[in-house]
Nucleic acid binder design. Structure first.
Length: 574
RNA sequence: GGCCCCGUCGUCUAGCCCGGUCUAGGACACUACCCUUUCACGGUAGGGACAUGGGUUCGAAUCCCAUCGGGGUCACCA
């Protein structure tokens, strides 16, 4: 099978969950490939042995699949509904860089033989101190080619290298300007001497990112590289390497960054920042909070001290601390959004709009901004990628999510919400029988911005009848005010309800009929719905906010409804 | 600090390439009112931007220059 004209790739390093910015990159690469009937590649950049893990790689694939992004070549993966993704139809694998070391070394030896790369033997500490000195002197640090000066004869260096002495391989960067042609930014020029002799193979024998990327993009047939703008300054390195190796240069398109509302780059470190800030705040009230956390999280004093000092900022540590301190860390990774009840279609749509737009109008003249992945595959174009970085406005995402939820047919919402709850809020699934779930779901759908928020007003359904806690303010206002008007209404309602649903009728209660009882009662008394409904709400849920009452009673059923009414009446001796 | 990128409502953006149709359009958020049994949804209306200064031109958000501002990047991480 011949390689198509368009091959794109998404190449994450497996050091954690998929970042939301990575999701956008993947989405664009995928959509571009689909639009041009090309091939979308997933490649795992696991050359950092210390930080990479198979779990992360699997997690990223799960996140991608959840978003509906499938890859034509890459690691094999089976989705939760049994669809197989990935494989190696063009025989260019494997797709884990750690398994391609032999290939890298072949190309690397070629460079060394041609004098375009050379071993260097400085210790990391030596380089580090030179770097620090340069920074202190307010000068730009560039590798000074000391290795070449000290041992001019390549044969000597190769002998030393073969003797097993620890070394890195550096690329001998030609002394010439580099032009990068970028489809988003236009031509970007780098003067000769801007790029120094960077390392292309580490002391552990693994290639660095720059080298692996260049070799892989060539050997995997990648034609279009779309990535975030933070990589722009890497591109001259890659172009220089391609030239030295005799490779083609793919088409580049660097897309704008996704930033926080304070315009810093949105990064996993933000979680650590938030956790650190929380510790600082907590320590004002509780001086020993750090050591308490150290033992409670099981992280230990040392790790926690390093974390507070900013020496480490891993997501795992931040998450453990956040959980202990009971604070919400910012949503950064796709998994965070999933956990908080966002729909993949809303995330895709929103994230696609960060830096791209279809440039189309609706018949009523408004801009078209709601679309799905199929639309994106049909209309995505690099030309319409913007240049300016975008701030990630969670409020707007939330609005998109609410719209996406509302667009779901009731039955679909019910099923998807239940699936979400089963994973992240199992108590409610345990409490509300399947037969009544549809009623709850339809009652809650219109007011839910996320799956998680949909569950909030359902607290009433997760408590035993005797466990309802009456909010005092709600009781005062809706039951006791006006000479206990609410209690009187409640008593009347209790009688009417019991009469309408005698014991012999079973436990099922219709939402419509229940609602009708309230209506009749209000009418008979010459009252609006308010006083009656609010009193009942407080009796059934303890608070003044619940889904519509007919549905609420239908979910509770006859027995629970009566039990709660009676308990409320007794507690406040109506 | 060097290098690189960017600069339209608070935010995402349309318009910019191909100056006039822009008294700059949409969306989210905000404010007010309407609807309403709570919370929401929904409806209507409103405030809100071309960073600044110079050019070019009959005419500039659109072209040019400068200034200012913001961001990214400077690893044996990717």
């Amino acid at each position: 099978m011949p390689m198509p004209d368009v091959v794109t790739r998404f190449a994450p390093s497996p050091t954690g969950h998929l970042h939301i910015g990575g999701a956008r990159t993947a989405l664009f690469c995928w959509a571009f490939a689909r639009k041009h009937r090309g091939v979308f590649t997933l490649r795992i950049e696991d050359t950092d042995q210390a930080r990479s893990s198979d779990e992360s790689a699997r997690g990223i694939m799960e996140d991608l699949a959840w978003l509906g992004i499938d890859w034509d070549q890459g690691p094999e993966f089976t989705t939760s509904d049994g669809k197989k993704i990935g494989g190696d139809p063009f025989r260019v694998g494997p797709f884990f860089q750690a398994r391609r070391v032999k290939l890298y070394n072949e190309h690397l030896m070629r460079l060394i033989e041609q004098g375009k790369a050379y071993p260097a033997f400085e210790k990391p500490e030596e380089l580090e101190s030179k770097r620090k000195a340069a920074v202190a002197a307010k000068q730009t640090y560039r590798y000074d080619r000391a290795a070449l000066r000290e041992m001019p004869d390549i044969k000597d260096r190769l002998k030393r290298m073969e003797s097993g002495e620890p070394h890195v391989i550096r690329f001998f960067v030609p002394d010439e300007p580099v032009r990068v042609q970028d489809e988003v930014l236009g031509e970007v020029k780098y003067a000769a001497g801007e790029v120094d002799d960077f390392v292309i193979r580490k002391a552990d024998g693994f290639p660095t990112y720059h080298f692996a990327v260049v070799v892989d993009d060539e050997t995997m047939g990648v034609t279009h590289v779309m990535r975030a703008q933070e990589h722009l300054n890497n591109t001259p390195r890659h172009v220089a390497l391609q030239k030295a190796l005799g490779f083609r240069t793919p088409v580049y398109a660097h897309m704008p960054l996704i930033c926080n509302m304070d315009s810093s780059k949105m990064s996993k470190r933000d979680k650590a920042k938030a956790a650190r800030a929380a510790i600082k705040q907590a320590s004002q009230k509780e001086p020993g909070v750090a050591s308490r956390l150290a033992s409670e999280t099981g992280l230990g004093e040392k790790t926690l001290a390093d974390f507070v000092a900013g020496e480490i900022d891993t997501v795992e540590v931040a998450t453990a601390i956040g959980a202990r301190l009971n604070i919400a860390l910012p949503e950064i990774e796709v998994a965070d959004f999933r956990e908080n009840g966002y729909l993949p279609e809303a995330i895709n749509n929103f994230v696609a709009l960060l830096g791209w737009n279809p440039g189309m109008k609706l018949p009523d003249g408004k801009d078209l901004e709601k679309f799905d992945n199929a639309f994106l595959c049909q209309h995505f174009s690099v030309e319409r990628i913007g240049k300016t970085s975008a701030k990630f406005d969670r409020t707007k995402l939330m609005s998109f999510n609410a719209d996406a939820i509302n667009a779901l047919p009731d039955a679909v919402f019910a099923a998807r919400w239940r699936a979400w709850c089963a994973e992240f809020s199992p108590e409610i699934v345990r409490r509300v029988p399947e037969a009544r779930w549809g009623i709850l779901a339809s009652a809650v759908k219109a007011r839910a911005k996320t799956f998680r928020e949909a569950s909030k007003p359902c607290a009433f359904a997760m408590l035993d009848d005797g466990a309802i806690v009456f909010d005092q303010a709600a009781v005062d206002k809706n039951l006791l005010a006006n000479d206990k008007q609410g209690l009187a209404l409640l008593r009347a309602f209790r009688e009417a309800f019991a009469a309408a649903f005698p014991e012999s009728s079973g436990d099922e209660v219709g939402a419509g009929p229940s609602h009708a009882i309230i209506e009749t009662l209000a009418k008979d008394r010459g009252l609006g719905m308010g006083p009656v409904a609010q009193a009942i709400r407080v009796a059934l849920a303890g608070v003044a906010v619940t889904p519509p009452l007919g549905e609420t009673m239908a979910v509770l059923g006859r027995r629970s409804t009566l039990a709660r009414l009676d308990r409320c009446l007794a507690t406040h001796h109506g």
